[in-house]
Amino acid sequence: MKLRRETVQGYLYFLPVFLILGAVVGWPLIQAGWMSFSDLYLLKALRARNFVGLDNYIHFFEDPNASKFLINTAIFVVGGTAAQLTIGLILALLLNQRLVLRGFWRGLAIMPWAMPITVTALTWKWILDGQWGILNYVLVELGITDGYISWLSSPIWLWPSILMVDAWAGCPFMFVNLLSGLQGIPRDLYEAARIDGAGPWKAFWRITLPMLRPIIATLVLLSVIIHLRDFTTIWILTSGGPGIESTTLSPLVYVTSFRYFKMGYGAAIGMLLMLISLVFTIFYLRRVRFEAA
């Protein structure tokens, strides 16, 4: 009898969360799935939707630009994750050693976290500006480049620039998690390695990296999922342009659904995005459960 009362209580406490998530996440998700098999086109009429089977999905893969969108997504996901992780790791290693004012430097390293992404874009677009940007000015003054570069519209510099800003905004999260990982490595491991004659380089590859592996794996999965669904970073920097040069799947879903109002088609692309993301989510869930156990 007691167990049953606890069960009722437990569900009761969870009920408000369940209702909100059901209304704003669960139900829309089901609708999105259903929409992806329909020809819902907002300019025609909201009600007039027909079941079109897999047409939307087939349509996407027949789009000559489909490979472009997928490649862009891969560049953003792989490049963004790699850049954030590498810089986060370097910062964590450097700020884990003995240093004057270490707490202060650590505080500086996480500052980008507190800057809203709109302001990040506002500031970096100004720094990277092709005409008035300080970066061009400095590079030319130093004699590194000959002329001014339009960083966010040049075909060569477009992705490096986006990834650089993305790394700037995302490295604090990596840094903080990796630093706490580093602090969890027992010191005597390094002592033992030193006695065995291993230099710092060897110690890094033989101790630090293997010990950090579980955390890095979780962070990579998380970062991949976040980059897959990210819309804002790309949109406020380039709006997916020039042309479609920096359009990844999330901005594509936006443009299809809310600029061309082809909501059925947009939902289908979104479902594809979710399926890709699901693969990584499953791995992520496995890891998190493994760690909790």
Binding site: R229, F231, S257
Partner: peptide, 24 residues
Amino acid sequence: TIITIMLSTQMLPTMLVIIPIFLI
């Protein structure tokens, strides 16, 4: 199950779910 659902909803592509949210 509840915890798994909580963890997975965090991973959903917002742009997909927001289309029906907009219509609703």
